[in-house]
Deep mutational scan, measured.
Amino acid sequence: GLPEGWEMRFTVDGIPYFVDHNRRTTTYIDPRTG
């Protein structure tokens, strides 16, 4: 799974992105792969 505090969501286009609730940021880069 994802690191603690992270969540995976999808855009309206079906593109996955990642929400970091710890820092309240979003990124398209998987936190597991950097």
Rank of each mutant, 00 (worst) to 15 (best):
E4S: 12
V19Y: 15
R24V: 11
E4Y: 11
R32W: 07
R24I: 08
I15K: 09
N22H: 12
F18T: 00
P31M: 03
E7T: 11
R32E: 06
R23S: 15
P31Q: 06
V12Q: 10
V12P: 14
G1P: 15
D20K: 03
V19E: 06
G34Y: 12
I15R: 13
H21T: 11
T11P: 01
T26K: 14
P3S: 04
P16F: 07
E7G: 02
G14I: 00
T33W: 13
P31T: 01
P3Q: 03
H21D: 09
N22Q: 14
T33H: 12
E4P: 15
T26N: 07
G5A: 07
Y17A: 02
P3A: 06
L2P: 04
T27E: 05
V12N: 12
R9G: 08
D20I: 01
W6Y: 07
F18Q: 01
P31H: 04
I29V: 11
G14M: 08
Y17M: 07
V19G: 01
P31S: 02
R23Y: 10
I15P: 03
T33V: 13
T11Y: 02
E7K: 03
Y28M: 11
T11N: 10
I29M: 11
T33S: 12
E4I: 11
Y28T: 09
L2E: 00
P31F: 03
Y17D: 02
E7Q: 08
P31N: 03
E4D: 12
G5D: 05
G1R: 13
T11V: 02
F18I: 01
R23Q: 14
P31L: 00
D20S: 05
T27N: 03
R24S: 14
M8N: 02
T27Q: 08
Y17T: 03
T11L: 03
F10G: 01
R23E: 14
H21K: 09
D13Q: 13
L2I: 05
I15H: 09
T27W: 06
R32K: 04
W6E: 01
R23N: 15
T26Q: 14
I15F: 07
I15N: 06
P16I: 11
T26V: 14
T25P: 04
P3T: 03
R9F: 14
G14H: 08
G1H: 11
T25L: 15
W6M: 05
P16Q: 09
Y28L: 11
D20L: 05
G1A: 15
I29E: 12
Y28K: 06
N22L: 12
H21V: 09
G14N: 09
D20F: 04
Y28Q: 09
P16V: 10
N22R: 05
E4L: 13
T33Q: 11
G14V: 00
T25H: 13
E4W: 11
E7A: 05
P16D: 02
M8E: 08
G5W: 06
R32L: 05
E4T: 12
G34T: 14
R24F: 14
R9A: 08
Y17H: 02
N22K: 08
G1Q: 14
W6P: 01
D13L: 10
G14W: 07
E4R: 11
D20T: 04
V12D: 14
G1Y: 10
R9Y: 09
N22T: 11
V12G: 10
D30N: 00
L2R: 02
V19S: 03
E7H: 05
H21G: 04
R9P: 00
G34S: 14
R23G: 14
N22I: 15
V12T: 14
L2Y: 03
I29N: 10
D30I: 00
G14D: 07
F10L: 09
N22W: 07
G1W: 12
G34E: 11
F18S: 00
R24T: 12
W6D: 00
Y17F: 13
W6T: 02
T27R: 02
F18R: 00
P3M: 05
G5T: 04
N22D: 12
T26F: 15
T33A: 13
F18P: 00
P16G: 05
P31D: 03
T27A: 03
F10W: 14
W6A: 01
E4A: 12
F10T: 09
R32F: 06
D13P: 01
G14R: 07
F18E: 01
V19L: 11
Y17I: 10
R32S: 07
W6Q: 02
P3W: 04
M8V: 09
T27I: 04
F10Y: 13
V12S: 11
T25N: 09
L2N: 03
P16K: 09
D13S: 12
T27Y: 08
G1K: 14
D13F: 09
P31K: 02
G14A: 05
